[in-house]
Simulated assay, not measured.
Amino acid sequence: MSAKVYYSSMKCNMNQSPLNKIKKLINKCGITDIYGKNDITAVKLHFGEYGNTAFLRPVYLRPVLETLNRIGAKPFLTDTNTLYIGMRTNSVDHLHNAVLNGFGYSTLQTPIIIADGLKGESYTNLEVPNGEIYKSAKIASVIANADKLFVINHFKGHEMTGFGGAMKNLAMGCASRAGKNEMHSSVRPTVDPEKCTACGRCKMACDAGAITISKHASINDKCVGCAMCISACPKHAVDVDYNVACDTLQQKIVEYAAAVHSHFKEVVYVSVLTSIVPACDCHGGNDAPLIHDLGFMASTDPVAIDKASYDLVVKTAGKDVFQEAWPHLNPQDSFAHAKKIGFGNTEYELEIIK
């Protein structure tokens, strides 16, 4: 069985706003049937790391928020704290970063809630249907507790998965710090003894009693992978091994994405195919785009919208620009695993909306 994916290109006459195309797409997805009056709706996006200029433009949120408000839903913008050290490591800096990147209340008249607590500690375990790696996923509590979920993605390349779209926004984007650590790393965090000053802040942050302090901090087998020590360290001496095999990482992302989608059952996904740069918006900078701006897609199937977006980029470029950018991985491993566990549809019917 195939899924419906709706696509509208960037081509417009001077009297037609691209924003109206997004409204048409989400209406085709049945937004008024999925979201209702007083539904507290998490609008999941990526606010972009400070210094990055390729992230989703705030203006593209306007048609989504206008439609949800017209329905009478109660939308809020949300993202989760990062595992790495940056401007999105804790909720205080993350909120400041969101405002700096243009997502403030004065621009969009919509509250922002960072979904996994002050330092990424708040999560709910959601079942992974047919999971081969996980039985449950550690998903940010605010997202898990929302009445409804709406997901808007910036489709682009990614250095560890080939591309980033709806599945990655669902999985890594909705996971708590502990969940991110599960996906990104096959081992517990480690301490760099040359950076460590034995201040003890990591030990105070560790609920598992997994850290001892002598000349420097050490992490033992009691570690549960919550990664709270990473954000607690003022010297950035604690880190994780990001060299988990890329195919395994893609499989983990698929299973986390399946947990979130299954929890909500009905979700509208919008992918914005502009500034399609080679790497993730988590970087504090960005390279030139791999291809020109293509437009917008919408679907209620996260696998299908990713496959349609991927196929359109490859077809338009005349080559697989994601594989070319990251030859060490196969960007389509995620589709194979989704099909294997029965998550979403890799077969889709593309309908052009003008």
Rank of each mutant, 00 (worst) to 15 (best):
C202T: 03
V128Y: 01
K235E: 15
G86M: 04
G86Q: 03
N243R: 14
N181K: 07
P302H: 07
T161G: 03
S8P: 08
V260R: 07
F76L: 12
C199P: 08
A298M: 07
S262G: 02
T53M: 13
N90R: 02
E182W: 07
F155I: 11
A336E: 10
I40R: 14
A237R: 00
A232D: 00
L149V: 08
K319A: 04
T248L: 15
I133N: 11
V142H: 12
A175L: 09
K315G: 00
G162F: 01
V267T: 13
P63W: 11
N101G: 02
F296Y: 12
H283V: 01
G179H: 03
K215V: 02
P327I: 11
P193N: 13
D207I: 04
K37Y: 10
I213R: 00
A166H: 06
T316M: 06
I85Y: 12
G30N: 07
F335V: 09
N38Y: 09
L108T: 04
S8D: 11
H236A: 14
I31D: 08
S299N: 02
E324A: 10
T161P: 03
D287E: 15
G48A: 11
A210R: 03
A98Q: 09
N130I: 05
I34M: 05
I230E: 00
N97D: 09
V64R: 06
M183R: 01
A304Q: 08
Y134D: 03
L329A: 05
G102Q: 12
C282M: 03
C280D: 08
I341Y: 08
Q109C: 08
N220W: 07
R62N: 04
V272N: 12
P278W: 12
S231L: 00
D207T: 09
A232H: 00
L170A: 13
T89C: 03
V321T: 06
T110V: 12
P331F: 02
M228H: 10
P327V: 10
I22E: 11
C280R: 08
A208Q: 11
L329P: 03
E347A: 15
Y60K: 11
G318N: 09
F103Y: 15
G30I: 02
G157S: 14
P327N: 12
A237M: 06
P18C: 03
L56F: 14
C29K: 02
S218Y: 00
K215Q: 13
N181Q: 13
K44Q: 12
L126F: 02
E255T: 01
N13V: 07
Y310K: 12
K307V: 14
L126W: 01
A317N: 06
I112D: 05
A227E: 10
T32W: 00
L77N: 12
G162R: 04
A137C: 07
D311H: 02
S136Q: 05
A175T: 05
L100V: 10
C12L: 07
A205M: 05
E266Q: 15
P327G: 13
F335G: 05
R188V: 04
T161I: 06
